[in-house]
Design a protein around this nucleic acid. Structure first.
Lengths: 275, 275
DNA sequence: TTGCTCCTCACGTCACGTGAGGTGGC
DNA sequence: TTGCTCCTCACGTCACGTGAGGTGGC
């Protein structure tokens, strides 16, 4: 088994701090080869060095310790590479979001005035839809919706239903206020057969809405939410119930985000605007 | 002052969770416009919405709350933009380091064997140097050294000293093992006048070293450290004292990292190799 | 009145870093 | 013997999230 190294020597050789090494021992990520029964001193083998070097690099890439463990314990090269690639893809996704946020921040700071909006008052429903629902964290909304609409479009074809409106989503209050809550994706339909789970036939009730259209990337949609919310708050006409988004022009229509159109519907108790 | 909004409405309009809003109140980042004396209910103004929207974007970019406060409280547009630009530059730097780490990880995983090294045993010093020292966190080593060598090169010219060796650095044990400790940057010199603070004239004592040369990017230097440390540990010849790096070919010589050469000197108590 | 909104603690999360206080080893 | 290395708690950090338990408002 060769030379055993003290934690200090091992630290200098791997660039992992002594505290980090003790932590990795505690959580079982990198247990020392041997522990002196008398003194409790940790001893590491030279053969553990490459593992430690890989751990340091993976942690530097922000990979959570639990995933590092998966990589380290991977039974073969393919499994290991798959875990690493998955993490690198996630990092790419974050980078995309960062770029979008920078753009959105610039726009917010450059334009001094909030967007001018036209508020429309409208009664909707009851409406027949094909729907999927889930309770998810706010961060997963994008990915979940993208997948849901793929499934719903397939179900629309399979049931022979005729589409009667754009893709839409209902956001519960908790999802917006607490980072976790219910979301429902729907496609309004006419006629058609019974869908297979997880898709369901859902009849949306009659609701009265204040409606505004957001033009451009959904990364900036909070600005239109704020403008619409301001109008609702000033007139004190807000009621409970999920907020609805209708994706009139979305990613499936055009990749050019500047052309996207999203209708935001905020539940209110009167459909006639106050003077 | 216009309509006051409940925390829930404000949350829906800004996409900040209620918990986050309470937290930003607590830390003084975004205090509500008004607090009901009876109920403790927070009330926000519509005018606070754009600030909240900027906060959300800045936090999404990973800007620490204390810095967000600086941006929000910036007295003018220039100060605000400077703070944001500084953060974006830091993010760029992180991205560069991420790319380097990915490359280094690939190399580590692709090459199954640790690098072959030639260990040289050598006595060094006493050596006259122009030096700068500091106690810094490990993460700052790169930036600190880059600046220090600029200062030291200037001092070499100003004092009329003749360079007698490559840029070098001494790393204390704590700096490597604990993420914070002393570092010394030196340029060996002959003759020359007195340097001005913070540069000092430093006579490095006589030390015996085991020496190995690392070829390539310093991002992979831990592998040569490990190989050298293994030899020192196997022969049980290690002694205390800082580890030294000599930048024989570094960034100032060529931008092509593959051509870089770094000498690593590990203090030992014998300069003649064991049989 | 019911159910919803909002409140304040108190504690948890993640990956260690920071001491404190003490012991083994050359 | 001195000074260095190593040990184990216990607590701190950062930016909130997660309940618990309770109250105001329509």
């Amino acid at each position: 088994m060769g030379t055993l190294l003290s934690i200090g020597d091992f630290s200098r050789m791997t660039f992992l701090s002594v505290k980090a090494l003790r932590h990795y021992h505690e959580v079982g990520l990198l247990p020392p080869a041997e522990i002196d029964a008398d003194t409790g001193y940790r001893r590491y083998e030279v053969a553990q060095v490459p593992t430690a070097q890989a751990i340091r690099r993976l942690r530097e890439l922000g990979m959570p310790v639990d995933e590092v463990r998966v990589v380290i314990d991977a039974p073969d090269v393919d499994a290991r590479n798959a875990a690493i690639s998955a993490h690198l893809r996630r990092m790419e996704g974050e980078l995309d979001r960062t770029r979008a946020t920078v753009k959105s921040l610039r726009m917010l700071l450059d334009e001094s005035a909030p967007p001018a909006i036209v508020v429309d008052y409208r009664a909707a429903g009851p409406t027949e839809t094909l729907a999927m629902r889930a309770a998810i964290p706010h961060a997963d909304v994008f990915d979940w919706l993208a997948e849901a609409f793929v499934t719903l479009r397939l179900a629309t074809e399979e049931t022979g239903a005729a589409r009667a409106g754009a893709d839409a989503a209902l956001f519960s209050g908790e999802l917006l206020e607490e980072e976790f809550g219910e979301i429902v994706a729907v496609i309004p339909v006419k006629a058609g057969g019974r869908p297979a789970a997880p898709v369901e036939l859902l009849r949306l009730p009659h609701v009265e809405y204040a409606v505004a259209v957001h033009a451009g990337s959904v990364d900036d949609i909070d600005r239109t939410y704020a403008a619409l919310g301001t109008v609702v708050a000033e007139r004190a006409i807000g009621v409970q119930g999920p907020i609805r988004e209708d994706y009139l022009v979305g990613t499936s229509e055009t990749a050019d985000e500047a052309q996207h159109l999203t209708e935001i519907s905020w539940p209110v108790f009167q459909t006639t605007p106050a003077a």
